[in-house]
Amino acid sequence: MDHRITICTSCRHKGTECRPGFELIEKLRHAIAKAGDFVPDDFEISGVACMAGCDRPCTVAYHGTRKATYLFGDIDPETDVEDLVTFARQYAYLHDGWCSSVDRPGKLRASTLARVPAAMIVTEESKVRAS
């Protein structure tokens, strides 16, 4: 799979023991499966113990091979799944994963915590002449 969505499972709503990450994983898996061809690429959806977004739960990251990575915070499993599915579709078609905030759907315009450029390692081939 070339695309992944990672969801923090440790984040808690402030002042509660509620950890919305597990609920969000299930809802997002179901919604992407239901979307069918709307999301053209298979996305691996998994949880991780911590993504250091504790002040803005629930945090969600989109990763792709040779693409920018996005980290979103303040995601609500009750209201934001549609925006996450729409962004999955958009992200699948972005060649380098790069898009401006105004191009992201709904709440994701204002809840971006980070956009990390793809790591590109370039090596130069040695051009040695044989004598």
Rank of each mutant, 00 (worst) to 15 (best):
D2C: 06
H3R: 11
I5P: 02
C8F: 02
T9A: 09
H13K: 12
T16Q: 04
E17M: 08
P20D: 03
G21M: 06
F22N: 13
F22A: 07
F22S: 13
E23H: 07
L24T: 01
R29C: 09
A33C: 07
A33Y: 07
K34L: 13
A35K: 08
P40Y: 10
P40H: 08
I45Y: 04
G47H: 12
V48W: 09
V48G: 11
V48R: 13
C50K: 14
M51A: 12
A52T: 14
G53R: 10
D55K: 14
P57V: 06
C58G: 07
C58W: 02
V60W: 08
A61Q: 15
Y62N: 03
R66H: 15
Y70P: 03
F72I: 06
G73P: 01
T79C: 12
E82D: 14
L84N: 05
A92W: 02
H95G: 12
W98T: 13
D103I: 00
P105N: 01
L108D: 00
R109V: 01
T112S: 05
A114V: 04
A114N: 08
R115K: 13
R115A: 04
V116N: 07
A118Q: 13
A119L: 15
I121V: 12
I121H: 09
V122W: 10
T123W: 06
E125H: 05
V128Q: 14
V128I: 13
R129Y: 13
